[in-house]
Every structure is written in C-alpha cells, then in structure tokens.
C-alpha cells in the first residue's frame, strides 16, 4: 500500500498545469479519491502528478445564459450544498449527496470523477440525463464536448494527452421538470450497483419531457432511450412508469461481479428507474 515514487507539482495556474502535462508520464490529480488508492496498490505508476487543487480558477459554480458552469475542482460537497444548484439544477445537487461518504465528498471533485469515468460513479447518471457538456482545455486550445461523446468506455474518455477537463456544463432546469435519483450501493465502496437519474415533465397527465440515465449497470453509464421513448407523450402513471422502466437495461451488456449478478443488476435497473420516475412524478 505504498505507491511507487513520483514527482509532484501543484501549480497555481491552469497554464502552468498544462505545461507540466506536456510530460507524457504525468497524470492529473483532482481530489485523488480514485487515483490515490490506485497509486497505493501500484495499479497506476505515473512519473509525475500535477495537482490541480491550488488553481483557484477551477473551483466555482456560476450561471451563464441558462447554463450552469461548474469548475472541475468543485468538490462533491460543494455541489451537494450549493444554493444555486439546489434551485436551478437540483438533480445534480441531490446526486452529489449520494457519492461515497462525507470524507470522499469533501475531497473528491466533479472534474476528477467525470474524467476518471468509473462506470459505477454517481455523477454520470445525472449528467447524462442533464445532457451535460464538458470543457477540455489544452495548450493549443479548448473544446466543449457532450458528455456522452466524452465517455468512451469504462475508465476511458476522449480526453487527449495534454488536455485538462476544466468545466462541467449543465442546463438550468426547465420549468415544470421534476427530478429524482435512486441508487443501491455496493456497501464496501459506496459506488452504485445501480443508479437511476430521472428528469420528468408532466403536462395534463401526460409525459411532456423525460430523460433517464443509469450508472453501474453496464460497462458505461448510459441514457436509457428505450425508457424515454416508451414514456414520451404517454400517460404519467404507475402502470406506464413500470412498463417503461422494464426497458431500463435493454440492449445493455449488464455487468456481473462479486457484488451483483447481471440478473440482479438488470432487475434493479428496472426497479430503481421506476421508483425514480415515481419520485419525480410525486415531487412535480
């Protein structure tokens, strides 16, 4: 449980950080809640860690023309307790409150979590349902990418060498859309065995808007399009929710491990999706 030796830098500006990342063997440290354990188990042995913790420009939550921009180094606790998010993007705030435990939420950051791309992390469910984007900055420029394009595979993203994820963008929640997040956690790690995020708009008893995304179920968090399609425009009632939620793991290569079998995960995906839909409908 002792990492291999590495150099450590804690730049105070983004440009310094980008310069340090020019070294191919360098890795970004953004809270360290996943990276530090990997270092201690020697599963990761980078030559250099570039700690973003001292870059003040990466820690903020700001509203900008209907979009909320969240700095990469904003901790889960800051997201969970943000008044702005509670009012304007409650799904993200309530999802952050489910992450790990208090210690993890105090140290872990949204940018670190998204860039690590753990297939059982909580954030991606909410962020996919929110159709979030991420801002990636490199020495040569910057780009804004939709999250579903950014997440390539388990622990794999479209982040290029020398790029840093600096911001997460989510929309200000639409009027009349209610949200919910339901999860069942793996008790040791606190990661989701299944997490289901829902955004639901109901108009005259019918579903006028719906986004559903799940995490933990398959090799990637995903938008449950089949659930959305089944609900769109139809009645917003328990029978419809149950029927639609049954599609939650449709077409997904459901994971099986020592904590949960594929059958159990698939069943949970449907149950938690249905319950999240009911929660959202109940709070609308």
């Amino acid at each position: 449980m002792i990492p291999a030796s590495f150099d450590y830098s804690a730049p105070e500006t983004l440009s310094e950080a980008l310069q340090l990342l020019g070294d191919e063997e360098a890795k970004v440290l953004a809270g360290g809640q996943s990276l530090i354990p990997m270092l201690k188990l020697r599963l990761a042995q980078p030559a250099r860690l570039v700690d973003l913790d001292r870059i003040p420009d990466l820690n903020f939550i700001a509203e900008d023309n209907g979009t909320i921009r969240i700095g990469a180094m904003t901790t889960h606790h800051q997201v969970e307790s943000s008044d702005l998010l509670a009012e304007k993007c409650p799904l993200l705030a309530k999802t952050a409150g489910h992450i790990g435990d208090v210690q993890v939420r105090n140290r872990g950051t949204i940018g670190g979590s998204v860039a690590h791309a753990d297939p059982a992390a909580d954030y991606p469910a909410a962020l996919l349902a929110l159709e979030a984007q991420v801002k990636l900055v490199s020495a040569s420029g910057e780009r804004v990418v939709a999250l579903d394009e950014f997440l390539v595979d388990a622990l794999t993203t479209s982040l290029e060498d020398g790029e840093i994820l600096t911001e997460v963008h989510v929309p200000v929640e639409q009027e009349g859309v209610a949200t919910a997040y339901r999860t069942l956690i793996q008790p040791a790690s606190g990661f989701a065995i299944v997490g289901a995020a829902v955004r639901l708009g109901v108009s005259n008893g019918n579903v006028s808007f719906v986004r559903v995304a799940l995490t933990g179920v398959g090799p990637n968090p995903y938008r449950a399009s089949a659930v959305e399609e089944a609900l769109e425009g139809g009645p917003a009632n328990a029978e419809a929710f149950a029927a639609a939620a049954a599609h939650a793991a449709e077409g997904v290569d459901v994971l099986s491990d020592i904590h949960a079998s594929a059958a159990y995960r698939a069943s949970l995906a449907a149950v938690q999706t249905r319950r999240a839909l009911e929660d959202a409908a109940g709070s609308a």
Binding site: P37, D101, Q186, P187, A188, S189, I258, H259
Partner: peptide, 24 residues
C-alpha cells in the same frame, strides 16, 4: 455484508476495503 470470498484458485477476491464491507 462481511465474508471473504476465495475463488477456486485460492485467490481472495475481496481483499481491499473497497470490496470487503465492514459496517459503516
């Protein structure tokens, strides 16, 4: 929650606190 899990090769499958769950 608890219980170590060995596979047929005698490998401990839940050998860290990320996998071996003690009460919180």
């Amino acid at each position: 929650q608890e219980g170590v899990i060995y596979d047929d090769e005698g490998q401990l499958l839940n050998g860290t606190l990320m996998d071996y769950s003690i009460p919180k």
